[in-house]
């Protein structure tokens, strides 16, 4: 199951045929069976996370995990921290606001510094597309992308795929409508890549000003009419619209956006009767999604997404550090 050389990036080091990658910088470059492998691995951790008071597995004991977050985050950082701690790693968080990048240090210098501290796995979030790849090329340990600019957020793509697989039984053949600010969304890109690779029928839906050019080249269909985009969908995935983009730059106003592209119970009737509603959070209630939809326990998978996030991140941390831990077949 050796991959053809063309599918590899420079930093890849085949560890095991099931997942021959050193880093997880994106869903792009992963084969469908590799995505499925990560989802299967994540399934193991759901039971542990749900099981009683002790949620500890010591397999990353003694390993240092640095969460280097150059962009503010609450939930993703927390999710990675919990994932690392449940696996027994020594987890250290580095916040941009208190880091030397504010003093003019370059990203490369920061990467070299983290490397010199002998981290065993580095989790990075950065506001520039490609920044994580830049660091991954400079360090000796596995790097996990926790979101880079408008490029990718691979663990989000994986956790969404896992949520859909568990709730709908399958991913292949599902009609998934990804709605809202696709242009600026790394979540949308990772989801499109993961879900199309696994055979879903993906639509992107939103105002034309918030849909990327040439998005059709990513094997999706493009809809600017919200109702048409929702028609018959199995999954409705809403994206967050940043406040600064509602003030006339991309859409005229929050209330117009809500009127045209907000998911309300009436709007949701266009989708299949049992359609799943998802949102990567944090939500703008009353703008892209109505509270009554977000809080509908029968339809909304939003809290389950958060739960799957921890399991997926545990799986990624485990798989990427197997080589360093000398696991047979991975070292």
């Amino acid at each position: 199951m050796e991959q053809p050389p063309a599918a590899r990036t420079r930093s890849d080091r085949p560890g095991n045929p099931m997942f021959p990658h050193r880093h997880l910088t994106g869903i792009a470059g992963l084969q469908p069976h590799e995505i499925t492998f990560l989802l299967d691995e994540a399934e193991h951790w759901i039971a542990l996370n749900r099981g009683g008071a002790s949620k500890h597995d010591g397999r990353l004991a003694g390993l240092t995990q640095i969460n280097a977050f150059f962009e503010n985050s609450t939930r993703t950082l927390l999710s990675f921290e919990i994932a690392g701690k449940r696996l027994g790693a020594d987890v250290v968080n580095m916040h941009a606001a208190t880091s030397s990048t504010k003093k003019g240090e370059t990203l490369i210098d920061t990467a070299v510094t983290l490397n010199a501290m002998r981290a065993d796995v580095i989790v990075i979030r950065h506001d520039a597309s490609g920044a994580v790849q830049l660091i991954a090329d400079k360090v000796d340990c596995p790097v996990l992308n926790a979101g880079d600019g408008q490029h990718e957020h691979p663990t989000q793509g994986l956790l969404d795929a896992l949520t859909i697989r568990r709730r709908r039984g399958n991913i292949a053949g599902q009609i998934v409508a990804i709605c809202g600010d696709v242009l600026h969304s790394r979540v949308a890109r990772s989801n499109i890549l993961a879900l199309t690779a696994l055979g879903a029928d993906v639509r992107v839906v939103g105002p034309p000003t918030l849909l990327p050019p040439a998005i059709e080249k990513m094997n999706v269909t493009r809809h600017t009419d919200f109702d048409a985009g929702l028609d018959g969908a199995d999954v409705v995935m809403m994206l967050r619209l940043q406040r600064e983009r509602m003030a006339g730059g991309f859409v005229p106003s929050p209330r117009e956006y809500h009127a045209l592209y907000g998911l309300t119970p009436e709007r949701l009737k266009r989708a299949k009767p049992d359609a799943l509603v998802m949102h990567p959070g944090p939500m703008n209630r009353g703008i892209e999604i109505a509270s009554s939809v977000a809080d509908d326990l029968n339809r909304s998978a939003i809290t389950e997404q958060v739960e799957m996030g921890v399991a997926v991140r545990m799986a990624c941390l485990d798989v990427l550090t197997r080589g360093r831990r000398g696991i047979e077949g991975w070292a």
Binding site: D148, Q150, H151, P212, P213, A214, M218
Partner: peptide, 15 residues
Amino acid sequence: TDGETATRLGLPSAP
């Protein structure tokens, strides 16, 4: 430039 590369990489682009 607007196109598949810019879209896949999430780079700000212009027509």
